[in-house]
Design a protein around this nucleic acid. Structure first.
Lengths: 198, 198
DNA sequence: GTCTATAAAGTGATAGAC
DNA sequence: GTCTATCACTTTATAGAC
């Protein structure tokens, strides 16, 4: 019938798993459910992936890639550091609200990886990517505003990841957007105090 | 054989589920695995609980109770607000490091509840409890130090939950205790700036 | 109340026809 | 390569002996 290349099938299945987990949670992502979502027969699964774990591993890469696309142009430079940080964090927030499922998938993957020793490295790589992104963005903002961080940028980056991650999870639970933005704005002001003229 | 009251059996099974999820992740918590962990036969499960979901619901209450016990005497009052907040947050952190599995279970339950509409209320209640606890602790600290919060205490509480939750998840992933404490200390200083003389 | 044994449904993974 | 049909196993949940 439809002669779809395996490469393309893989992509479809990963994207389908992404949607299923985002909308119905990790437990719903059975091979059957994923194949149905992709419009593929069940058997397609195992001639595209050696195992379900292989799909999950590729899914993590895919989700991180989606993240990188969404976060592109992360740093925003304005007149002051405080304003720049606020705009940057609001930019982050727009990417969350634009696609909440992506965040739900990422937190689900983290959680799953925590329980599975075979995937422990996956969660670590995920957070290292978060930290790397935050570090780059913070450096860009500081450079653009002609300031430097009073603390090691690694530490400021971790604070930022902690806050964005925490805000996101809290929002996934109660969907209180106003509260989320208020926290991010307050954090932007506090972060600005950690900068000094270069 | 062992004539154990159902009430006690329930307690044992909930505690067993708690341990299994904490150590091996949510997916490992099958009825079999939980019963084995509790030293109970498989059939014990269904004359203690109508369904697995009933256990999970009770488990959430149990975990929240454990949390309340661990966090008892949360507020610490010292000479200054900054010192008080730092001591209080470090007290929080001690409870995390003393029993990391409790936190792992709570994040796993949150994650699971996010995907299951039938349990959406569970996650919300969980976070409401977090916010309530944070609000009470922050109020206690402010009163003890003779200051008041510049922002509505609800917002300061949400900031605190965001940070503690974020720090905890990041630590569950990479177990970097020094980084966790550094973030909490920095946050304590920043929070102190949100207080003014009463 | 307590257990062994088993049912009924769902799971990841394959065999084998086309 | 692609699919139908099915395997081997695990899951939640029950029956029925003691």
């Amino acid at each position: 019938m439809s002669r779809i290349p395996a490469r393309e099938r893989r992509r479809q299945l990963v994207a389908a798993a992404f949607r299923v987990i985002g909308e119905e949670g990790f437990a719903a992502a059975t091979t059957r459910r994923v194949c149905a979502e992709a419009g593929a027969p069940l058997a397609a699964f195992h001639y595209c992936f050696a195992s379900k774990q292989e799909l999950l591993s590729e899914l993590t890469d895919y989700a991180m890639g989606e993240l990188e696309v969404a976060r592109a142009g992360g740093a925003v430079v304005r007149a002051t550091v405080a304003e720049s940080l606020r705009a940057t964090l609001r930019g982050y927030w727009d990417t969350v609200e634009a696609d909440p499922n992506r965040e739900a998938v990422l937190t689900a993957l983290t959680q799953h990886a925590l329980g599975d020793p075979a995937l422990a490295g996956v969660a670590r790589r995920q957070y290292e990517a978060y930290h790397r992104t935050a570090r780059a963005t913070l450096t860009e903002v500081a450079d653009g505003c002609g300031v430097r961080w009073r603390l090691p940028v690694e530490q400021v980056a971790r604070m930022t990841v902690v806050v964005t991650d925490g805000v996101t999870v809290a929002w996934l639970v109660d969907r209180d957007s106003a509260a989320a933005v208020a926290v991010l704005d307050a954090f932007a002001e506090q972060l600005a105090l950690l900068a000094e003229p270069a």
